[in-house]
Amino acid sequence: MARGATLMSKAWNSLVWLTIGFFVVNLLALIGAVAVNSFATRWLGTWFPPGYTTRWYFAAWDEFQLSDVLLVTMEVVLAVVVLSLLIGVPAAYTLARREFAGKRLVTLLFVLPLLVPPITYGIPMATVLYQLHLAGTMTGVILANLVPTVPFVILVMTPFIEQIDPKLESAARVFGANTLRVFLHVLVPLLAPGMLAAGLLVLVRTVAMFELTFLTAGPSSQTLVVALYYSVFAAGVRAGQSVDAMAMIYMATTLVWLFIALRFVDPTQLVTRVKKTS
């Protein structure tokens, strides 16, 4: 009986590990296939391409005007990170420190944009931005991307601020610091690690945010991920390798930031902290 049970649990264990392994292997193969193809001279009907080249990267760079796209991406991402911290952190501070009438309603307001998928609210939002003649502009793209990132910053920062002892602020006040000074000399240094984490997460999410940018961007305000979509969509016109070269450039951008981010944060933070709020 006991032996049967251990045999069962061993079989179960192996099955679980096999599943994990299968998933990871396929994931790595998926990334590997893109990488190999982007360096392939020609790759048809063989395990590996006959020769390797870097020319697709140059081709992609010119064909897709990647220098412009990367510049736009950087500008959008930077603006989104800074603005979402500026708007989100004060709100998180209030939610962490104060009990007030309507707090539950406000919290719900901040959770909703994270629960509703971007494409669902993106279409009406894009419509409004078109009415305001903001769609197709950088401003429009930045505003659209802020919709999920501001609540995201709030939900990441609120528990972070909650665990900072409020007595530190009280102490600063008792010693005569005014609000601005409390903020600059006490809060900012204490909040810096949390803001760094939140900012990096927003950065990774914004680089990868397809739907909202896609719905609101014009030709001059595309980010990398949208340009990649268009190039895949128009595949056949372009060489598959140069599309994959672009995919590699995109992947490099997100992965670099992902690994930087993971030095500072717990991977589970990448998915929204719904547990805290529900």
Partner: peptide, 26 residues
């Protein structure tokens, strides 16, 4: 490792799967 697909986003995963799952894919 498991976080990677989230950050790569849907577009890159789709492009990767096109190559990987294609008739000539690995």
């Amino acid at each position: 490792i498991l976080v990677i697909p989230i950050t790569l986003g849907t577009v890159l995963v789709a492009e990767g799967l096109l190559t990987y799952l294609g008739p000539q894919g690995w």
